[in-house]
Simulated scan of single mutants.
Amino acid sequence: MLYWLSEIFQINLLGYITIRAGIAFFLALFFTLFLMPRFIRWAQKTSSVQPINNWAPERHQSKAKTPTMGGIVFISATIFASLISIKFSNLYAVGAVITLVLFALIGFKDDFAKIKKNENLAGLKARTKLLLQVISALAVALFLYAQSDFNTNLYLPFVKNPVWNMGFYAVIFWIIVIIATSNAVNLTDGLDGLATVPSIMALTSFSIIIYITGNITISSYLLMPNINIGEVAIVSSALIGALSGFLWYNCHPAEVFMGDSGSLTIGAFLGYLAIISKSEILLLLIGSIFVIETLSVILQVGSYKLRKKRVFLMAPIHHHFEMKQWAESKIIVRFWIIATLSNVIALITLKIR
């Protein structure tokens, strides 16, 4: 709508991506800050609270009455701000909104099932959830594959030229990236604000990379691929604003949790951003906390099945530190620091090619 207004009334300022990204950020921020306390009161009134897994550390039992499914609020705020701010003729921005909608629906269905049965493990069956994720990721991947100006090349950090044209295999690779990132963020969302700030850091990095990739002058200077994806930075900026508003209520001690409706959606969106910016491999560094959390689960399960021994006291790894009696705030802040540093390093690599 804002771009349309810039065309109709010749408001050149609204034609700039950076200006509309800033507007989207504040729209999503204020919308989240306005709706979240009302959602919290409604959730408490209707007992839409977080069921705690019986295997979770003892201290988590005190969080049993904390409202969940807050992701619906900040994802809705993101979509609202994006629809007002993006240029609809840019299909990559439209694809970003579609990704948010598809995975938010999966997360909502899972959250609603848990709340209805008041049981942490009573959500969607693992196979059903994975099937829905595959179908949604396939739709997004085929959407990207159908774009005439979008290539299927694989890029590596520090290398200025693509290393492999994946052809149709790119669709399979993109599906894996989206699903893996979606589930990685979901695993990380176990402490107050733990997944929120690393997500903000990752989104900030991708917003910068996407703006560069969409700008022919800057991308040429940095020897990066040039694709018309700059508008997607507006959607990313909106989600940063929405998450900032959510963090106001999600920081320790949390008044609300994002639930699968938030974590699954954020992860899928990060995967989408990595794909369109040709940064799938760099995603490992940008989302370092999510990678560490996922690897800790893989190591724990693999070790127990092969050796009948555990590597960690409990997985994901943030629970390991809880079992070692670290204060929850200390675990959270230290993970935030790691996420910030890894994203700074990721941005530095853009210049080294």
Rank of each mutant, 00 (worst) to 15 (best):
L2Y: 12
Y3A: 10
T18R: 14
T18N: 14
G22H: 12
I23P: 09
A24S: 15
F25E: 11
L27K: 03
L29G: 00
P37S: 05
R41L: 11
T46V: 05
I52M: 00
I52F: 01
H60T: 08
H60V: 07
Q61D: 03
Q61R: 15
S62G: 06
K63Y: 02
T66V: 13
I72N: 06
V73W: 00
I75W: 00
I75Q: 02
I79N: 00
L83T: 10
K87M: 08
I98Y: 11
V101L: 13
V101D: 06
F103A: 05
K109W: 15
D110L: 06
D110E: 08
F112P: 00
K114M: 04
K116F: 11
K117W: 06
N118F: 11
N120D: 08
L121C: 03
L121N: 14
L121E: 15
K129E: 05
L130S: 08
I135R: 09
A137C: 10
L144P: 09
Q147R: 13
G167S: 12
F168E: 12
F168R: 12
I172N: 01
I172V: 15
I172D: 00
I172P: 00
F173R: 00
V177P: 01
D189E: 05
G190E: 03
T196G: 02
S199T: 11
I200T: 10
I200F: 09
L203W: 01
T204V: 12
I209S: 09
I212Q: 10
I216P: 05
Y221D: 07
L222M: 15
I227M: 12
G230F: 07
V232D: 06
V232E: 05
A233Y: 12
A233I: 13
S237I: 07
I240N: 07
A242V: 05
G245R: 05
F246L: 04
N250Q: 06
V256H: 02
M258E: 04
S261F: 02
G262H: 06
G262P: 06
G262T: 08
S263G: 03
L264K: 02
L264Y: 03
T265W: 07
I266Y: 07
A268P: 06
A268E: 00
F269W: 10
G271Y: 01
Y272W: 10
S277G: 12
K278D: 08
I281Q: 08
L284A: 14
L285W: 09
L285F: 11
I286E: 03
I292C: 07
I292P: 03
E293N: 01
E293C: 02
L295D: 00
L295F: 12
I298S: 02
G302W: 01
Y304N: 03
K309E: 08
R310M: 03
F312N: 07
L313F: 11
P316K: 03
H320N: 05
F321Y: 13
M323Q: 10
K324H: 02
Q325K: 14
Q325I: 06
W326N: 04
E328L: 09
S329D: 14
K330V: 13
V333A: 07
F335A: 03
L341H: 05
L341K: 06
N343I: 08
I348M: 14
T349Q: 14
I352E: 09
